[in-house]
Design a protein around this nucleic acid. Structure first.
Lengths: 167, 167
DNA sequence: AAATATTAATTGACACCTGAAGTACTTGGC
DNA sequence: GCCAAGTACTTCAGGTGTCAATTAATATTT
């Protein structure tokens, strides 16, 4: 992706000795960081997606939704799912429809607010998710197994800070 | 080998729910790392996508394809685009169709092999891409601007190693 | 040269995802 | 009580993405 040629800073930046140089380098630095992160994510995501398809005939979004529900035995509202999965509401509706049709999740009406649904894993959904989750963990571990424990810790820490910063 | 939980007793502040919320305490560190990376990537991607839509009425895949072409003035084959964008060939066909219809790219036939196309940016495509790329760079820089230079360097380095390992 | 295999790109079926518009319900001010 | 504003979810159109099957051209084998 990306990268325009050098671009003069448009922000009022102090003209210290090497300010411009540092800013200039920073441009390339951030974009490079972003592209590299994106490349890593895409590769891992592709592997997980292909494995889910090949071994469980399911998809990443379905797995993701079920993973959210597994942590919330009392169920989650559609809006909560939407927020946690970082996707739009309309999307959650579609994925939930599919899973419900297959009997893996169910919508339960709220006692006091008839607009909201509480989505839960069915017994079958729980069984299936647990089988998938165990394998999923192995896939991820294998992909990261060339990286030392120490570096993984560094990455977790640095990405944690990044995550906090970008809100 | 268990991970250090960062459940700081300090802050009763509710954590923003996201992909990482699916974590159990006993999940492997690699899974934690993966989900955190995914969360960061998703957030940044969402910002870029929304900006591209709002300011240029275009999309991330289109931008991505044009970015690849801008770096290859002699053009790229469909298969090369597919490989560099890390998506399937069928997908590239669709995106290229759209851009071609809008006159931003063109397919040129190969002199010796009539199966291949060389996709190039049109003059208009170049103009438009350069405008977008400049802004895109700013968006990325702004999102990363809370992170120190040193940490960005560390991230670039660590992600580079990760990228090499997962092939 | 003819038959076969390989390669580049496209197509079609299906799932995902967004943004905007629509429906049903609840809430808060009067 | 009424009604406007807000909330929870769904629907719809359009672009993105996969895989598998197909078409067309080139390479290889015989």
């Amino acid at each position: 992706m990306a990268m325009a040629k050098d671009r003069k800073a448009q922000k009022p930046v102090e003209r210290q000795a090497d300010a411009e140089t540092r800013l200039h380098d920073d441009h390339h630095q951030s974009v490079r960081l972003w592209l590299r992160m994106l490349a890593c994510t895409n590769r891992i995501e592709n592997v997980v997606r292909r494995n889910l398809q090949a071994k469980f005939a399911t998809t990443l979004p379905r797995f993701d939704l079920m993973a959210q529900l597994e942590r919330a035995p009392r169920g989650l509202k559609m809006s909560e799912l939407s927020q946690r999965m970082m996707v739009t509401g309309g999307n959650v509706t579609g994925i939930t429809d599919g899973l419900e049709k297959e009997g893996l999740v169910m919508r339960e009406v709220d006692a006091t607010d008839r607009r909201v649904f509480h989505v839960k894993l069915s017994a079958e959904g729980q069984r299936q998710f647990r089988r998938m989750a165990a394998e999923h963990e192995q896939w991820v571990i294998e992909m990261f197994e060339g990286i030392s424990e120490r570096r993984k810790n560094q990455l977790v820490e640095l990405l944690g800070e990044l995550k906090r910063h970008i809100l």
